[in-house]
Design a protein around this nucleic acid. Structure first.
Lengths: 169, 169
DNA sequence: AACAAGAATGTTATTTTGTAACATTCTTGT
DNA sequence: ACAAGAATGTTACAAAATAACATTCTTGTT
């Protein structure tokens, strides 16, 4: 299980700069490997997505990019997102229309998410058992699986305990 | 497994009027049970969703309702959808922004879907094993599960065989 | 039958999310 | 330097969803 975002209150803004650095390094080498170009916008978009403690909407990202002098028209951000998605460097959380850094970009990645209804923090988990079960289940219907969207919501342990109430937005 | 939509070509428009009747009867009795009102728009919306052979977008539904003299402003359809969703009579397919009749509205329902990339037909399946596994998996993280979005895409058997190519839109 | 209260719907306007289409610029290999 | 393709800029629009407030419809009660 990867704790993608933090469990701390907004007071003690945990900086997960290590995760971000790691993610960017992975991104660099993956792109190099595949002859893809991690341009300035793309790189910065990925960084901003990682810096966010919860999934980031396209237009939120666009605003941040605009602040830094990047072009502020929608295609800019959607192109960057498309690139990052197809490179497997981020996931889209369909039920939130938001985007999230992928912690296992180097491995074949199915994004399985636990999303807290209260604080919107997201945990990504990699669970091969489920993957296999789903493939089998689909196969029994003659269905050939291509992609999986698994988004679970509920209450994270912090929010069950009331730890983050009001402090986590 | 419930074959929600048909496997036939557009030529032999399968009429699943039986499924629709069934769904509406279930809807009637569920609403009666819970003191909820299945009004004209709501009833007709549900019927139209069921009549569609694939998940129906809100605005597609709105257009159909408008044709029949219902009010044609967005809130009309979104209110109907909200009602049907919260009554468990339909599901939203998040990855398609589209809505689908629920075949097990009477039981506690988690909508698990197999969506064909080619013909967009959707099968809903009820798989308690997965449900249990997911609950357990979440619990090991102290996460209390509330809702599950499971949407699998790929190729249905017909489309793998090229059966429906061009005939299934 | 009249009436109050709440549910449902009507209406207008706006927000949020995502694309289409075409022009320009940048990068890379020759 | 230069051609070709990749990436980005620009303008306009489409698609999906909601806010806020007015009106009408139901239903239970007098």
């Amino acid at each position: 299980m990867t704790e993608h975002s933090n469990d701390h209150t907004s007071q003690s803004e945990h900086n997960h700069s290590h995760c971000i650095e790691q993610a960017l390094e992975t991104a660099e080498s993956l792109c190099a490997e595949h002859g893809q170009r991690l341009t300035k916008v793309r790189r910065r978009a990925l960084e901003l997505i990682w810096q966010s403690h919860r999934p980031l909407g396209a237009y939120q990202l666009l605003a941040k990019l605009a602040e830094e002098g990047f072009n502020s028209a929608p295609p800019t951000v959607y192109r960057a997102l498309e690139f990052l998605l197809s490179a497997g460097l981020i996931h889209k959380v369909e039920s939130m229309n938001a985007y999230l850094g992928c912690a296992h970009a180097d491995k074949p990645h199915k994004g399985y998410f636990l999303i807290c209804d209260e604080c919107q923090n997201v945990m990504e988990f990699d669970y091969q058992d489920i993957h296999k079960i789903l493939i089998d289940k689909a196969a029994t219907q003659g269905f050939q699986l291509r992609s999986e969207t698994i988004e679970l919501t509920g209450l994270c342990s912090s929010c069950q305990n009331g730890d983050d109430e009001g402090g986590c937005k």
